[in-house]
Amino acid sequence: MKQYSAAMVAHSFWFNEFSQYLDLREQGNADADIRYLAVEGNYFQQQTTSRSLRMVQTLKRRVNILDEDYFDLFPSLDLTNQKLMNLSAILQLDSLFDDFLYEVYRNELILGDAKLYSYEIEAFFNQKQVESSKVASWTEQTIRRLAGTFKTFLREAGLLEEQDDYDQVKRPLLDTRLEILLHTKGQTRQLAAFLGR
């Protein structure tokens, strides 16, 4: 059974910081060095030390779920595909968000409706509450916050565009090299979602 978590409500998309983290790694800094820069030197310009620490721990997990093949490709990708690489790392770390992309976003592309309404997001969480006692134990506020976080992340990745009473679902222009890399790494669900297959 999948392990779902609501921890994502405390995170942000942090794309610029993800890029900076990769730059620091490229310059030869170890994770411990980057943590020191973040906490002691406020490298990522966070308002509090605890926020710096939480962010750098999250970024470390995102970066470390990837490997050298991703790191080598990242600088040569356009902004859209760099954001998709950040999103890919997030999806690999959060199975509920991965399910949301695959079951909700992908279906919008397949069906061609391309309009994501709040009731469709509610239906997803209702289904997960039936499937998982963990999700069923969450408060309505937690689920509302998670739904908002999911939408925010997909908007920042360029996959959703906010309209009046719905989000326009946008199909990404996936770089062939990133597509091949995701396929090689076994990220078939992500690929299916990104490509609407």
Score class of each variant (00 low, 15 high):
E131M: 07
K170Q: 14
K115A: 09
S95L: 11
L154E: 00
S118A: 12
F153D: 06
Y43K: 13
S19R: 05
F153Y: 07
L178V: 10
K151V: 13
A7K: 08
D67L: 02
Y105K: 05
S19G: 00
Q47A: 11
L159W: 05
R177N: 14
Y166C: 10
F153M: 05
K60E: 13
A147W: 00
V56H: 00
E17F: 04
K83C: 03
V56P: 02
Q46V: 04
I121Q: 01
A114M: 13
V56Q: 02
E26L: 08
L111N: 14
R51V: 02
I34S: 02
V9W: 01
L87Y: 00
T152H: 11
I180R: 15
K185S: 06
E68H: 10
T176E: 15
A192D: 13
L109M: 14
E108Q: 15
E161K: 14
D33M: 00
R171K: 15
L111F: 13
A147L: 06
K60F: 03
A89G: 08
E140A: 11
T149I: 04
Q20T: 10
V104I: 13
G186N: 13
L59A: 00
I180T: 15
Q187Y: 14
G196F: 01
L182F: 10
Q127R: 12
L182V: 12
A7H: 08
R189L: 06
Q129M: 13
Y119E: 09
F15K: 03
Q82V: 10
W138L: 03
T49S: 07
A38F: 04
L24C: 05
V130S: 06
S88V: 04
V56K: 02
Q92V: 05
S132A: 03
D31W: 00
L174T: 13
F124R: 06
I180D: 15
A6N: 14
K60L: 09
E161L: 12
L146W: 05
L173E: 14
G196K: 00
D78S: 12
I34M: 05
M1E: 08
N29T: 07
V130A: 09
L159C: 08
T58C: 01
L116D: 03
G158S: 08
L174D: 13
G148K: 12
F125C: 03
L73E: 11
L191K: 07
Y117L: 06
L87R: 05
A192P: 05
R145Q: 12
F97T: 02
D33W: 03
N126H: 11
Q187I: 05
L182W: 07
E161C: 09
F13W: 00
F194H: 04
Y70S: 07
A89Y: 01
T58N: 00
L79P: 04
Q82S: 03
P172E: 11
A10Y: 11
G186S: 12
H11T: 02
E161G: 10
F194Q: 07
F74I: 07
Q45G: 06
L174V: 15
L91P: 01
F194Y: 15
E120S: 03
Q129W: 02
